Amino acid sequence: MITVHHLAHSRSQRVLWLLEELGLDYEVKRYERDPETSYAPPELRAVHPLGKSPVITDGDQVIAESGAIIEYLVEVYGAGRLRPAPGSADARRYTYWLHFAEGSAMPYQLMHLVFQKVRNAPVPFFIKPVARGLADHVLKTFVQPNIEDQLRFMESELTTRPWFAGDAFTAADIQMSFPVESAARGAGLGASHPRLTDFLSRVHSRPAWQRARARGGPYSFAD
């Protein structure tokens, strides 16, 4: 039996969604974030040394990292579903977007979150202008421009096809949902990103996504 070690408000929501799309039986072991730090609890280190989510166990297999988990589940249980035919142009796009989500998109999204926290952190009044000024400078000159470049690129890629890998919905769209949701919640998706906004609407209307949301519990990235 597959067990998802699921942390609220996290990337592991994608794993639940993939399992629902594949129609697989699985168990959910829930972990709550520390109310002060928002970090994962130390109990996760008993599953994987880094103590991060997502992690799944399947028999004696322990698999961490969103992309690795998705590749494992699609390869072992997909029976050809949710990925393009090997060697096709769609397959090359599928591999690209499967890795782009965490390798390129999420680092800037995370930096946006970190510097927003720095900007609003409770510090002595005489330090606050310095911290806020530094955070604003990094956000304005480095983080936000890179996010905007990526969002334009992602938007342009959806002008010629409905899904990131091609005409068919694939696991790459599951992987890409989190950075798009993160952008919508953090940096924002405006009128210049209608296709990304539509992508999220179509994602959230999928029955498997809704089942995963109900089973996974709180997920602020879709609120």
Rank of each mutant, 00 (worst) to 15 (best):
K117L: 10
A214N: 03
R132M: 14
L196P: 02
A212K: 00
T159R: 09
T141S: 13
H193F: 13
D173A: 15
A187R: 10
P124G: 08
S205Q: 13
F126V: 15
S182E: 12
V138A: 10
V123L: 01
W209C: 13
R211S: 10
S177W: 08
S192M: 10
R152N: 12
K128Y: 02
P145N: 04
I127M: 13
D149Q: 14
G186I: 12
F115I: 09
T170I: 11
R152V: 13
K117A: 14
G166P: 03
G190D: 03
K128P: 03
V114C: 04
L113Y: 08
A131P: 00
P207T: 02
A191H: 10
F199N: 07
R213T: 15
A183S: 11
H204W: 04
F153Q: 02
D167N: 12
P194V: 05
P207G: 01
A214G: 06
H193W: 10
L189P: 08
D167E: 14
R132I: 12
S156Q: 11
R152A: 11
R195A: 07
H204E: 09
F142Y: 08
A165P: 06
P124Q: 03
G190A: 03
S182A: 15
V203A: 13
V118M: 12
G190C: 03
I127W: 04
L151I: 06
N146D: 07
F153G: 05
A187C: 11
F126R: 14
V114H: 03
N120I: 02
A183K: 08
R152L: 12
P124Y: 02
Q175D: 09
F115P: 04
L113D: 09
A168Q: 15
L139I: 09
P145Y: 01
P124R: 04
Q150W: 01
G188V: 14
A165Y: 05
F115T: 07
K128C: 07
R119C: 02
E155M: 01
T159F: 03
A191T: 14
A171G: 15
Q144D: 12
F125K: 06
G133K: 03
L196K: 06
E155F: 01
P129Y: 02
E155G: 00
F125W: 10
A172R: 03
A191K: 14
R152H: 10
P162A: 09
L134M: 12
P145R: 02
D198L: 13
V130E: 00
G190I: 02
V138I: 14
I127H: 03
L151D: 01
A172V: 01
A212I: 00
L134E: 06
T170N: 07
P162T: 07
H204G: 11
F178K: 13
K117E: 12
F115Q: 09
K128I: 05
S192A: 15
L196E: 00
G186W: 08
M154E: 02
E155T: 01
F199A: 07
A212S: 00
R119P: 06
M176K: 10
Q210F: 01
W209A: 12
Q116K: 14
I147A: 04
K140P: 05
P129N: 03
I147P: 00
S156R: 11
M154P: 04
L134N: 06
V143W: 00
A168I: 10
S182W: 10
